[in-house]
Amino acid sequence: MAGIDVGGGGHGGKRSVNMELPLIPFIDFLLCLVAFLLITAVWSQMARINADARVPGPPRPEEEIEQKEKDKQLHVEMRGERKFQLVWKEGSTVVNTIDVERKPVKVNEDVTYPDLGKKIAEEWKANGSHRAATAKKFDQAVLHTDNTTPFADVIAVIDAIYTPQREYTVPGSGKTEMVPAFNVTFAVN
């Protein structure tokens, strides 16, 4: 056990100044604390996927809608059962249309579309407007689905849209990190 020894003491009827520190109860307390924290620790597997809303009428009237309209946007159509359609649009003008075969890959209970992810990454490298690390804005992708599509498929396609990654310099700190190249908007209409 640890102690404090200042030398001498205990002579001439004086009380000893040496002290024994009770470390064992302290260790017991620490062990209890460790056990409690380990038991209550949360090892979360939950995460999120972002999507903005595109609804009839602007949700934020103070934002300028016109500015957004001029940027090139990638529209991902998943209305058919056999293929996806990637449509590059500038405002309402269609610039390019690409068909991608719908090849779902099962991962346990989930579905993924790796081919769609690869094609979107290629398209972004060829046509993306905001590829520089210093670009503050991101390219916009708009997802269109029909009403009967199960939610798991919607998530699989959003996941594929987030496949291409780009460097992004965080304003202020100057740090560069990898972030998804697209912002995804879920078209409600």
Binding site: A47, N50, V55
Partner: peptide
């Protein structure tokens, strides 16, 4: 949610 003032939606998912 967008009409109620929540246009930034996140979907909760599990990590693959």
């Amino acid at each position: 949610a967008a009409f109620a003032g929540y246009p930034n939606i996140s979907f909760m998912v599990g990590r693959m």
